[in-house]
Computed example of a mutant assay.
Amino acid sequence: MEDNKPSLISRIGAMLLDYMILNFALPVLGMILMIPFMLDKIPNGPPSHDPEPFEYTYMTCVFGIIFGILFAKDVFKGRSIAKLAFKQQLVVHRTENTAGPLRSVIRNFTFFIWPIEFIATLISPGRRIGDLIAGTRVIKYDGRADSVKWTQIIVAYVVGVLFCVVTLFGLMFLVEDIIAPKAPKYLESSYNEALSHEIEDLITADQKLEVVPDVRYYDQLKNDSTVSYVSILLDYESGISRQYEVEERIQFIITNKVNDRPLIGRFIHFHYRTGNSETRRHSFDWTEEEKIMNSK
């Protein structure tokens, strides 16, 4: 058993080669798969008062496809490209039979702790943490002839994709409010058209501002009749370099106009350069009382 154990140098070399190959190929594949998503997100007009929520389903599936390939790097006869180059093979620890595709995929689930796995390999070249989980180890290739088990490979790849997708969806669920905060839900029937136009007129007439506003003021939220909500689309005719100054001035105008109740607001900026057809967007939520936002 010790005779077929690969040397530390060859194992480190194989790990680094696998890492370099995957680190080059998978990002390229990812960028190709992301093209439809990026094309769909290209702005094709002024933004809405109700922007579409961040959609991470497609991105999660792309990551699933990519990491599924990474997990499946050893499914062909227990040998990745690097193991072919360094004449190594993945086998079942107890029997030394060639590791099946499913074992090979499970072994690579620990890629997410790659630095720890690297240290584990320094300690035990033949068995890292993933090998302990999958019941496998790496040996010197002995020239054995194995058949390619396509059905098992497909099943193992699907398992790898599902593992990645489920893991990512779980993480997204936990941090969803951080990466894609949701706007407070206002009561549509409480739209105050008269007050919306009054605020628009005040913003337009302010000589310190050079913006074209589109205001939607709602008297209450769906779950709190004591809180109002205002959404403001701003077309910056002279650029957005004064963004924060403009925001503060508009907040001052609105809170002076409506000072009898707590207010949640959202600025949605857009800017068109007529010469270059450039569109810029920015969304910013604000409230008079931070505890209001935290409670919704």
Rank of each mutant, 00 (worst) to 15 (best):
S277I: 02
M59H: 11
R266V: 15
G143E: 03
R107M: 01
S124E: 13
V175F: 14
T98W: 00
A25M: 06
S10I: 03
E245V: 00
Y186D: 10
G45A: 12
S283M: 11
S7D: 10
M1D: 10
S190M: 02
I113L: 07
Q89D: 03
A134R: 07
R242Y: 14
V165Y: 04
A180D: 12
L8M: 11
I32E: 12
F118K: 01
Y157F: 10
H197M: 09
E245R: 11
K185V: 15
R107K: 05
L171S: 08
E52K: 05
K182E: 10
G143R: 01
R103V: 02
D219I: 00
T57Q: 12
I240D: 14
N276V: 12
R107L: 00
D214H: 12
M15W: 14
E52I: 01
F267T: 01
E176W: 09
G143C: 02
I292N: 03
D201T: 08
L202N: 02
E245N: 07
T274D: 02
N108P: 00
P125E: 07
L162S: 13
I12N: 08
V165M: 11
D40F: 11
P213T: 04
T136W: 08
I154P: 01
L234G: 02
G239R: 11
G45C: 10
G170Y: 05
T279K: 13
